[in-house]
């Protein structure tokens, strides 16, 4: 039955009985929910709201290129220090930015102000912050880069650049999971 290289998958679905159909749907649900569980589990373990990010711009070249993958942690007790690569969010921008810390000023109550800059940019990030914002502080931080793997996120980049490609992949995967039988 399986592995048929044809567009007769609809026949395939028709030939399934009800139990098999339920099984396939439940299977699909399992895949989605375990992916969600892993993601949420990582969030708890790393303390970061987004433990894995894909580099979307070339502002950290030659260290990180578009499509590279970063693993983040964001533990409260770890202080923010100069030279660290932080991922932060700026008000009014949806996409988090991955840049390096250039200046840190920390008060004795633990509150900290810091300034960032991309390795490949010639000026610091004050032009990227919200209007009138001069410093970042702890609540802006999504995570600190701890691990690096090249190229792995390239599919994300392709999906971002070509939305049609994204929908094609999603549809194919969905059909495959629902129809595929061992």
């Amino acid at each position: 039955m399986s592995g048929m290289l044809s567009f007769e998958f609809l026949d395939d679905v028709r030939r399934m009985n009800k139990r098999q159909l339920y099984y396939q749907v439940l299977n699909f649900g399992m895949i989605v929910s375990s992916a969600l569980m892993i993601w949420k589990g990582l969030m708890v373990m790393t303390g970061s709201e987004s433990p894995i990010v894909v580099v979307l711009s070339g502002s950290m070249e030659p260290a990180f290129h578009r499509g590279d993958l970063l693993f983040l942690t964001n533990y409260r007790q770890e202080p923010i220090r100069v030279g660290e690569i932080v991922v932060f969010k700026v008000e009014g921008r949806d996409i988090p930015i991955v840049h390096r810390v250039l200046k840190v000023h920390e008060k004795d109550d633990g509150s900290v102000k810091f300034l960032t800059k991309g390795d490949n940019n010639s000026v610091d990030d004050r032009g990227l912050y919200a209007p009138g914002q001069l410093w970042l502080d702890k609540k802006d931080v999504v995570g600190r880069a701890r691990g690096f793997v090249p190229y792995v996120g390239i599919v994300t980049i392709l999906m971002n650049d070509y939305p049609k490609f994204k929908y094609a992949i999603l549809v194919c995967l969905g059909i495959f999971v629902l129809v595929h039988r061992e």
Partner: peptide, 23 residues
């Protein structure tokens, strides 16, 4: 090792801030 990013830091303490780091 793909690259090294070197940075020269000045670290000091002031009346306002217990820790200042400037690259």
């Amino acid at each position: 090792v793909k690259q090294l990013f070197l940075y020269l830091t000045a670290e000091y303490k002031t009346a306002d801030n217990v820790l200042n780091q400037v690259v």
